[in-house]
């Protein structure tokens, strides 16, 4: 498989993992290891003094894993920039999953604020991976603003509905000059494989692994699906239509035989 390169860093795995919704940090760690992922997202929260929580960070720190802090919880570009600065300070990385969703029900990204924040964060030296609508024009604008990837959604977060935005993802992949990471909505390994077959550079999966009956084995299933899909894409997919035969009669092209 071709290596994936984002902002100069090489990734052998094309599966990115989210760390939300696991029933324990131990289970999360096992799923991460089983998936072979080299990029893991995390969120930020305010510390609480009586919080006796096990620190999740120590479970995901690993020299092979790029931490991708997200800005979840922010509602506009200004808050996103504040969150980005905190995350760079806390985790020592300028990589950032930019997500701005003011809507608390569907967590759909705000395109206007996302573009605005991307423009500013790139100037501030961040490697910005924006979570965004599957909007081809927006994705080109984000690319022009300096985004390191675009991360269009397949379906609303957490719905496991697969690639509902298929036609737009196809256009985004065709047009994009930066890696296209399909984020959100991927609910089954077959969805991930489909995205990869279409030419997506990577998939970001969280809920489907975290809430599986056996997250560790599901992580392996996704690892294999992503690899299979990518290999199929790189190998050139075969016929999908009815098989073609050379046609004997030539009503349209007989003029070429004169």
């Amino acid at each position: 498989m071709e290596k994936l390169v984002i902002a100069g860093r090489e990734f052998r795995s094309r599966l990115f993992l989210g760390t939300g919704k696991f029933s324990s940090n131990d289970l999360m760690k096992r799923a991460i290891n089983a998936s072979g992922t080299e990029m893991v997202t995390l969120a930020m929260k305010r510390i609480e003094l009586d919080d006796k929580d096990d620190d999740m960070l120590q479970h995901i720190i690993n020299p092979n894993i790029q931490l991708l802090p997200n800005t979840s919880g922010v509602r506009n570009a200004e808050e996103a920039i504040f969150a980005a600065q905190l995350s760079r300070e806390a985790f020592g990385t300028n990589w950032l999953k930019l997500e701005i969703h003011p809507d608390p029900r569907y967590l759909l990204p705000d395109s206007t604020e996302t573009l605005k924040a991307t423009e500013q964060l790139v100037k501030m030296g961040f490697v910005v991976l924006p979570y965004c609508q599957a909007d081809p024009t927006l994705c080109k604008r984000l690319e022009e603003a300096g985004a390191a990837t675009v991360m269009p959604l397949g379906a609303p977060i957490g719905t496991n509905k697969g690639l509902q935005t298929r036609e737009f993802l196809r256009i985004i992949i065709e047009q994009s000059g930066v890696p296209v990471v399909v984020d959100a909505g991927i609910g089954a390994p077959s969805h991930a494989a489909e995205a990869m077959e279409m030419g997506a550079a990577a998939c970001l999966v969280n809920t489907a692994i975290a809430v599986a009956g056996n997250p560790e084995r599901m992580a392996i299933a996704f690892k294999q699906a992503v690899e299979a899909g990518r290999m199929a894409y790189e190998s050139g997919l075969g016929l999908q239509a009815d098989s073609l035969v050379a046609e004997a009669s030539s009503p349209l092209t007989s003029f070429l035989n004169d």
Binding site: M44, R46, L57, A90
Partner: peptide, 10 residues
């Protein structure tokens, strides 16, 4: 003062 730390999230 605001102090933040890592949390689980996608």
């Amino acid at each position: 003062l605001v102090v933040i730390k890592a949390a689980c999230g996608g």
